[in-house]
Protein backbone atom coordinates (compact mmCIF):
# COMPACT_ATOMS: atom_id res chain seq x y z
CA UNK A 1 0.00 0.00 0.00
CA UNK A 2 1.24 3.47 -0.80
CA UNK A 3 2.55 4.96 2.41
CA UNK A 4 1.40 8.47 1.56
CA UNK A 5 -2.12 7.70 0.42
CA UNK A 6 -4.86 9.24 2.48
CA UNK A 7 -6.42 5.84 3.04
CA UNK A 8 -3.19 4.57 4.55
CA UNK A 9 -3.16 7.40 7.09
CA UNK A 10 -6.65 6.45 8.22
CA UNK A 11 -6.06 2.70 8.52
CA UNK A 12 -2.65 3.21 10.08
CA UNK A 13 -4.18 4.54 13.29
CA UNK A 14 -6.70 1.76 13.57
CA UNK A 15 -4.43 -1.22 13.01
CA UNK A 16 -0.75 -0.74 12.42
CA UNK A 17 -0.16 2.00 14.96
CA UNK A 18 -3.10 1.39 17.25
CA UNK A 19 -2.55 3.97 19.98
CA UNK A 20 -3.53 1.66 22.83
CA UNK A 21 -2.26 -1.76 21.85
CA UNK A 22 0.80 -0.90 19.76
CA UNK A 23 1.96 2.61 20.70
CA UNK A 24 0.79 2.13 24.32
CA UNK A 25 -0.40 5.69 24.79
CA UNK A 26 -3.32 6.91 26.86
CA UNK A 27 -3.08 4.09 29.35
CA UNK A 28 -4.92 5.89 32.14
CA UNK A 29 -8.38 6.17 30.49
CA UNK A 30 -7.87 2.76 28.90
CA UNK A 31 -7.65 1.14 32.30
CA UNK A 32 -10.09 3.36 34.12
CA UNK A 33 -13.09 3.41 31.79
CA UNK A 34 -13.13 -0.11 30.36
CA UNK A 35 -15.10 -1.82 33.13
CA UNK A 36 -18.30 -1.17 31.19
CA UNK A 37 -18.83 -1.19 27.42
CA UNK A 38 -20.91 1.99 27.58
CA UNK A 39 -18.22 3.90 29.44
CA UNK A 40 -15.49 2.70 27.09
CA UNK A 41 -17.46 3.58 23.98
CA UNK A 42 -18.34 7.01 25.36
CA UNK A 43 -14.72 7.67 26.32
CA UNK A 44 -13.53 6.55 22.90
CA UNK A 45 -15.94 8.82 21.06
CA UNK A 46 -15.24 11.80 23.32
CA UNK A 47 -11.50 11.39 22.78
CA UNK A 48 -12.10 10.92 19.05
CA UNK A 49 -13.98 14.21 18.87
CA UNK A 50 -11.26 16.10 20.76
CA UNK A 51 -8.50 14.46 18.74
CA UNK A 52 -10.14 15.23 15.41
CA UNK A 53 -10.80 18.87 16.29
CA UNK A 54 -7.40 19.49 17.85
CA UNK A 55 -5.56 17.84 14.96
CA UNK A 56 -7.40 20.00 12.43
CA UNK A 57 -6.90 23.16 14.44
CA UNK A 58 -3.23 22.55 15.17
CA UNK A 59 -2.60 21.66 11.56
CA UNK A 60 -4.23 24.92 10.47
CA UNK A 61 -2.09 26.89 12.89
CA UNK A 62 1.12 24.94 12.35
CA UNK A 63 2.86 27.81 10.56
CA UNK A 64 1.72 30.44 13.06
CA UNK A 65 2.59 28.81 16.39
CA UNK A 66 6.23 29.54 17.27
CA UNK A 67 8.42 26.51 17.89
CA UNK A 68 9.23 27.34 21.52
CA UNK A 69 5.63 27.99 22.52
CA UNK A 70 4.14 24.94 20.85
CA UNK A 71 3.52 22.64 23.84
CA UNK A 72 1.62 25.30 25.87
CA UNK A 73 -0.32 26.32 22.77
CA UNK A 74 -1.31 22.73 22.05
CA UNK A 75 -2.37 22.22 25.65
CA UNK A 76 -4.60 25.30 25.55
CA UNK A 77 -6.18 24.23 22.23
CA UNK A 78 -6.79 20.71 23.51
CA UNK A 79 -8.15 21.91 26.85
CA UNK A 80 -10.54 24.20 24.98
CA UNK A 81 -11.97 21.34 22.93
CA UNK A 82 -12.15 19.13 26.01
CA UNK A 83 -14.25 21.79 27.71
CA UNK A 84 -16.60 21.94 24.71
CA UNK A 85 -16.98 18.14 24.61
CA UNK A 86 -17.46 18.01 28.37
CA UNK A 87 -20.23 20.62 28.32
CA UNK A 88 -21.97 18.81 25.43
CA UNK A 89 -21.82 15.46 27.22
CA UNK A 90 -23.03 17.05 30.44
CA UNK A 91 -26.00 18.59 28.64
CA UNK A 92 -27.09 15.74 26.39
CA UNK A 93 -25.74 12.53 27.97
CA UNK A 94 -25.95 13.01 31.74
CA UNK A 95 -25.59 9.26 32.41
CA UNK A 96 -22.33 9.08 30.52
CA UNK A 97 -21.16 12.23 32.27
CA UNK A 98 -21.73 10.55 35.63
CA UNK A 99 -19.91 7.38 34.52
CA UNK A 100 -16.84 9.10 33.14
CA UNK A 101 -16.57 11.76 35.84
CA UNK A 102 -13.12 13.25 36.16
CA UNK A 103 -11.74 11.15 33.29
CA UNK A 104 -13.59 13.40 30.88
CA UNK A 105 -11.51 16.34 32.11
CA UNK A 106 -8.42 14.25 31.93
CA UNK A 107 -8.70 13.87 28.15
CA UNK A 108 -6.70 17.13 28.26
CA UNK A 109 -3.61 15.27 29.40
CA UNK A 110 -4.25 12.15 27.34
CA UNK A 111 -0.91 11.55 25.68
CA UNK A 112 -2.50 10.27 22.46
CA UNK A 113 -3.85 13.71 21.69
CA UNK A 114 -0.75 15.72 22.55
CA UNK A 115 1.35 12.98 20.97
CA UNK A 116 -0.47 13.18 17.65
CA UNK A 117 -0.25 16.98 17.68
CA UNK A 118 3.49 16.75 18.19
CA UNK A 119 4.18 13.82 15.89
CA UNK A 120 1.71 14.37 13.08
CA UNK A 121 -0.51 17.45 13.01
CA UNK A 122 2.26 20.03 13.19
CA UNK A 123 3.99 18.56 10.15
CA UNK A 124 1.08 17.64 7.88
CA UNK A 125 -1.69 19.40 5.94
CA UNK A 126 -5.21 19.71 7.27
CA UNK A 127 -6.91 16.82 5.47
CA UNK A 128 -4.21 14.33 6.39
CA UNK A 129 -4.23 15.48 10.00
CA UNK A 130 -7.99 15.13 10.14
CA UNK A 131 -7.77 11.57 8.80
CA UNK A 132 -4.97 10.77 11.23
CA UNK A 133 -7.10 12.07 14.09
CA UNK A 134 -10.06 10.05 12.88
CA UNK A 135 -7.98 6.88 12.47
CA UNK A 136 -6.25 7.22 15.83
CA UNK A 137 -9.55 8.03 17.53
CA UNK A 138 -11.22 4.99 15.98
CA UNK A 139 -8.24 2.83 16.92
CA UNK A 140 -8.54 4.09 20.49
CA UNK A 141 -12.31 3.43 20.54
CA UNK A 142 -11.95 -0.07 19.07
CA UNK A 143 -9.22 -1.06 21.52
CA UNK A 144 -11.18 0.34 24.46
CA UNK A 145 -14.35 -1.47 23.40
CA UNK A 146 -12.48 -4.76 22.90
CA UNK A 147 -11.10 -4.52 26.40
CA UNK A 148 -14.44 -3.46 27.84
CA UNK A 149 -16.27 -6.39 26.19
CA UNK A 150 -13.85 -8.85 27.80
CA UNK A 151 -14.10 -7.19 31.19
CA UNK A 152 -17.85 -6.68 31.22
CA UNK A 153 -18.91 -10.03 29.72
CA UNK A 154 -16.65 -12.15 31.89
CA UNK A 155 -16.60 -9.87 34.93
CA UNK A 156 -20.21 -8.72 35.23
CA UNK A 157 -22.06 -11.18 32.94
CA UNK A 158 -23.59 -8.36 30.95
CA UNK A 159 -23.05 -6.55 27.67
CA UNK A 160 -23.50 -2.78 27.52
CA UNK A 161 -25.68 -3.03 30.62
CA UNK A 162 -27.87 -5.88 29.29
CA UNK A 163 -27.49 -8.98 31.49
CA UNK A 164 -26.39 -12.24 29.83
CA UNK A 165 -28.34 -14.84 31.78
CA UNK A 166 -26.33 -18.00 31.06
CA UNK A 167 -23.10 -16.32 32.20
CA UNK A 168 -24.70 -15.36 35.53
CA UNK A 169 -23.08 -18.21 37.50
CA UNK A 170 -19.65 -17.82 35.97
CA UNK A 171 -18.84 -14.23 36.80
CA UNK A 172 -15.20 -13.38 37.52
CA UNK A 173 -15.95 -10.22 39.42
CA UNK A 174 -12.29 -9.37 39.82
CA UNK A 175 -12.14 -8.40 36.14
CA UNK A 176 -14.35 -5.36 36.62
CA UNK A 177 -12.15 -4.10 39.45
CA UNK A 178 -8.86 -2.24 39.10
CA UNK A 179 -6.48 -5.26 39.05
CA UNK A 180 -8.60 -6.92 36.35
CA UNK A 181 -8.04 -3.94 34.06
CA UNK A 182 -4.26 -4.23 34.34
CA UNK A 183 -4.42 -8.00 33.86
CA UNK A 184 -6.62 -7.84 30.73
CA UNK A 185 -4.45 -5.07 29.28
CA UNK A 186 -1.31 -7.15 29.84
CA UNK A 187 -2.90 -10.19 28.22
CA UNK A 188 -4.09 -8.16 25.22
CA UNK A 189 -0.61 -6.77 24.64
CA UNK A 190 0.80 -10.31 24.77
CA UNK A 191 -1.91 -11.34 22.27
CA UNK A 192 -0.91 -8.52 19.91
CA UNK A 193 2.66 -9.79 20.14
CA UNK A 194 1.53 -13.30 19.15
CA UNK A 195 -0.68 -12.04 16.31
CA UNK A 196 2.00 -9.79 14.83
CA UNK A 197 4.70 -12.39 15.50
CA UNK A 198 6.60 -9.95 17.67
CA UNK A 199 6.93 -7.18 15.13
CA UNK A 200 4.77 -4.48 16.62
CA UNK A 201 5.79 -4.37 20.28
CA UNK A 202 9.48 -4.94 19.49
CA UNK A 203 9.39 -1.72 17.54
CA UNK A 204 7.75 0.43 20.14
CA UNK A 205 7.17 -1.34 23.50
CA UNK A 206 6.92 1.40 26.13
CA UNK A 207 8.54 3.89 23.89
CA UNK A 208 9.44 7.48 24.33
CA UNK A 209 8.81 8.20 20.68
CA UNK A 210 5.13 8.61 21.42
CA UNK A 211 5.66 10.69 24.53
CA UNK A 212 4.98 14.39 23.98
CA UNK A 213 7.74 15.22 26.42
CA UNK A 214 10.38 13.17 24.62
CA UNK A 215 12.11 16.20 23.15
CA UNK A 216 12.80 17.88 26.47
CA UNK A 217 13.02 14.87 28.68
CA UNK A 218 16.33 13.90 30.17
CA UNK A 219 15.31 10.94 32.28
CA UNK A 220 17.86 8.18 31.94
CA UNK A 221 15.25 5.49 31.46
CA UNK A 222 14.11 6.96 28.19
CA UNK A 223 17.51 7.04 26.55
CA UNK A 224 18.26 3.60 27.95
CA UNK A 225 15.05 2.27 26.50
CA UNK A 226 15.80 3.80 23.14
CA UNK A 227 19.16 2.09 23.14
CA UNK A 228 17.65 -1.27 24.02
CA UNK A 229 15.27 -1.35 21.13
Amino acid sequence: MNKNSTFFVLVNGIIKENPVLVLVLGTCPTLATTNTVNGAFGMGIAALAVLLCSNVFISLLRKIIPETMRIPSYIVIIAGFVTIVKLLVQAFLPNLYATLGVYLDLITVNCIILGRAEMFANKNPVLKSALDGLGMGLGFTVALCAMAVIREVFGAASFAGVPISFMENFKIEFLTKAPGGLLVYGLLIALVYVLTKGKAPAKTSFSCAGCPNASHCHVETCSEKGAEE
Binding site: A178, P179, L182, L183, Y185, G186, L187, I189, V194, F206
Partner: peptide, 22 residues
Protein backbone atom coordinates in the same frame (compact mmCIF):
# COMPACT_ATOMS: atom_id res chain seq x y z
CA UNK B 1 7.81 -16.32 27.88
CA UNK B 2 8.46 -14.28 24.74
CA UNK B 3 4.96 -12.80 24.20
CA UNK B 4 4.92 -11.49 27.77
CA UNK B 5 8.37 -9.91 27.71
CA UNK B 6 8.53 -6.22 28.46
CA UNK B 7 5.28 -4.39 28.95
CA UNK B 8 2.87 -7.34 29.20
CA UNK B 9 4.50 -8.94 32.22
CA UNK B 10 4.94 -5.52 33.81
CA UNK B 11 1.21 -4.84 33.54
CA UNK B 12 0.34 -8.24 34.96
CA UNK B 13 2.74 -7.68 37.86
CA UNK B 14 1.09 -4.29 38.44
CA UNK B 15 -2.23 -6.10 38.51
CA UNK B 16 -1.05 -8.21 41.44
CA UNK B 17 0.24 -5.19 43.34
CA UNK B 18 -3.15 -3.58 42.74
CA UNK B 19 -4.86 -6.76 43.99
CA UNK B 20 -2.86 -6.48 47.20
CA UNK B 21 -4.02 -2.89 47.64
CA UNK B 22 -7.66 -3.99 47.24
Amino acid sequence: PAPFKGLAVTLIAASFVSLAFM
